[in-house]
């Protein structure tokens, strides 16, 4: 109940803020896009696994958007759909191999694949534009050709809708039979097998879903920015996703968005103050959260709720 309240408050706040302070529209969109990718990371954290390379799916979707937008005159929504599908298929294929591993192997293999993708994108300059990335002209959205400001507003609602739907879907997934089995991977895979449940299959489905979420976040991000650079798939990005996931907490889907908002706004306002020490800040905050509030913001919210109920 309390979390539902927070969700509604967050949605209302998002709409109010972006209408009264138009310059905040972009950071709000970016936070929601990041939130989607972070939700993907959270799915895996529920299985006790952490991926240090999940930005690769966002990055792959982003480049898909650019390639398609430059080659054909496609609608924005179609671009998002196609690019997300490609990222999902990509994660399904890679997942076939990666879901066999756990712990540091899982984390580092994801990192390894993301670095391979990053290097390929950076090196094949003729196709990918190298480290400068590729830009594209603003596509029409649902058939409407929009000016910059109207486009941003429309995109905001698209992103908000995606975030809401995916948040709900993720939450339902967490409470479903495959989702509960996914969380059981964290504690006892042997038992799962002895129930006749394939841990690999359960984990593969979770991985695919997380790839879908990261891909959706990445394609929306690309549309919002009108530009994609290899940085989108660099390990630093993946590290940020993991950071936000821990900050927000994996107990509930809302954690992804709460974490992403705080992250984006701290960066928006404090980046200038913290030039050169941004990673020191992130690292320190991460350590503090792990020691003091290992369940993140969601953990604080639910703990806050308990006394009121009893």
């Amino acid at each position: 109940m309390f979390i539902r309240l927070v969700t509604v408050a967050l949605i209302v706040l998002t709409i109010i803020i972006s209408h009264s302070f138009p310059w905040l529209k972009t950071p709000v969109i970016f936070s929601l896009c990041n939130g989607l990718a972070v939700l993907g990371v959270i799915v895996l954290i529920r299985a006790g696994q952490v991926s240090f390379g999940h930005a690769m799916y966002s990055c792959a979707a982003g480049y898909m958007v650019v390639f398609l937008a430059r080659a054909y005159q496609l609608d924005g929504l179609l671009l998002i759909g196609l690019a997300t599908s490609v990222a999902t298929v990509f994660s399904a294929l890679l997942g076939l191999f990666i879901v066999r591993y756990r712990g540091i192997f899982f984390g580092m293999l994801n990192l390894a694949f993301s670095m391979v993708l990053y290097s390929i994108i950076s090196k094949f300059t003729t196709i990918t534009g190298g480290t400068d990335g590729l830009s594209f002209t603003r596509p029409p959205l649902a058939g409407f050709v929009l000016e910059r400001d109207a486009f941003e507003t429309a995109l905001l609602y698209v992103v908000l809708a995606c975030a809401l739907i995916c948040g709900l879907l993720a939450q339902r997934y967490f409470e479903s039979a495959p989702g509960q089995s996914l969380a059981a991977i964290k504690t006892n895979e042997t038992r799962l097998e002895y129930l006749g449940i394939s841990a690999k299959h359960v984990f593969w489905m979770g991985y695919l879903f997380s790839g879908f979420l990261a891909g959706l976040g990445g394609s929306l991000f690309a549309i919002a920015q009108g530009l994609v650079t290899p940085e989108a798939g660099y390990w630093v990005r993946s590290g940020e996703f993991v950071f936000i996931a821990i900050l927000g907490g994996s107990g509930h889907a809302i954690g992804a968005y709460l974490g992403a908002f705080i992250f984006e706004f701290v960066r928006f306002y404090a980046a200038a103050l913290l030039t050169g020490a941004w990673q020191i800040t992130l690292g320190t905050v991460l350590i503090v959260i792990i020691f003091l509030a290992p369940e993140g913001l969601v953990g604080m919210l639910t703990r806050f709720r308990l006394p009121a109920r009893r």
């Binding site: 879907l169 339902r172 997934y173 409470e175 479903s176 039979a177 495959p178 989702g179 509960q180 089995s181 059981a184 799962l192 129930l195 006749g196 449940i197 489905m205």
Partner: peptide, 16 residues
């Protein structure tokens, strides 16, 4: 979870 193992088709977005 154990009971869910007896079922072959399980809703991905359906409460356990």
């Amino acid at each position: 979870i154990a009971a869910s193992a007896r079922r072959d088709k399980l809703g991905f977005f359906r409460s356990i």
